[in-house]
Design a protein around this nucleic acid. Structure first.
Lengths: 171, 171
DNA sequence: CAGGCTTGGTTAAAGTTTGAAGCAAACCTA
DNA sequence: TAGGTTTGCTTCAAACTTTAACCAAGCCTG
């Protein structure tokens, strides 16, 4: 099978996406680090918890929602627990699992910092988009998420023959 | 000024974007780590160089193109140099600056691994999109990039009064 | 041309992420 | 129900990133 290179249009789209994503994440991380003393990922862990019933979720579920590895989550929760924003709780029914639960202080931090964060996201992203583009954004990426989740539940490895050859890297 | 919260639609779009971006970067990083022994960022540094005249760029320009900090680039280039994929060269005209230059081996690695990378990007992203969506993707994010770059060349800090209050974190 | 500012790049320490390995509890299934 | 597998979570070391200095070379301006 000969490589299906990206077209000019696709390349432009890909580069714009990558560039925007880097710049956007940097900007958001900076703002949150300033205002909330934590990177975006940590903020969104708190945000996820705040929306769960009782402000608590099992580690695995939380990792699933945040689309991160359990290992990464363990580290993050450990830090947030040290900061007093989250508390760990054992699960009665399944001795293996444990919950992460938002503390009052965690909730307070979230309430204090949410407006600044939302304002950042809005001004850097949504203020640049027309209502149609917001819609398009959602359609595009919810499709991609679905595809990637289907991908996850797959044979594991070896069955997809990567490794073709030719020229034109695509960044 | 009272917070301009995100609408339902905006929230959905934002979450889909964040989720897709996490999953996509993870998948791409895994594939490249497997096939090329380096994360996506490092690959794209090589890709950027491969498109520059003589396969070389000053550090600052390279950082600019890749949308990363100079510090991060220094680290990455040091590693890639250790691997023999890049060589540093002093600039004659300006004793401060230095070039990063793709070596033959670097170019070879790129050529060997580009097809797999492109196939990944295509199958996970572009295969999910209609031609219109590709166009939309580019329009949306090139606009965002422009906004973010305008943002960069700004007063530096203090003049934007963040810090409003109310409820609803937005992840 | 001296002094001070800017630019290009690196460094050091602290923080974060990864990937593999480990451990224990739950879940089979023969 | 013993033995093997899966699931939930953590740990460790190595890799990477961030942030704030830092240094040296170029660029003023008086």
């Amino acid at each position: 099978m000969t490589t299906r290179w990206l077209t000019e249009k696709e390349q432009r789209a890909w580069r714009a996406y990558i560039a925007a994503t880097h710049l956007l994440e940097d900007a958001i991380d900076r703002q949150l680090q300033q205002d909330a003393g934590m990177p975006h990922l940590y903020y969104s862990i708190l945000a996820n918890l705040s929306e769960a019933p009782d402000g608590r979720l099992r580690m695995t579920d939380l990792a699933e929602r945040a689309k991160i590895t359990r290992s990464r989550l363990t580290y993050a929760v450990t830090r947030l627990e040290k900061d007093g924003l989250i508390r760990r709780e054992d699960c009665q029914w399944d001795k293996r699992s444990s919950f992460a639960m938002l503390t009052d202080e965690g909730m307070a931090v979230l309430e204090r910092t949410a407006p600044g964060h939302v304002e950042t996201v809005r001004s850097l992203l949504f203020d640049q988009l027309t209502p149609q583009q917001v819609e398009q954004l959602e359609e595009i990426f919810s499709g991609v998420v679905q595809a990637l989740e289907r991908e996850e539940e797959r044979p594991t490895s070896e069955e997809v023959p990567w490794r073709r050859r030719s020229s034109g890297p695509c960044s």
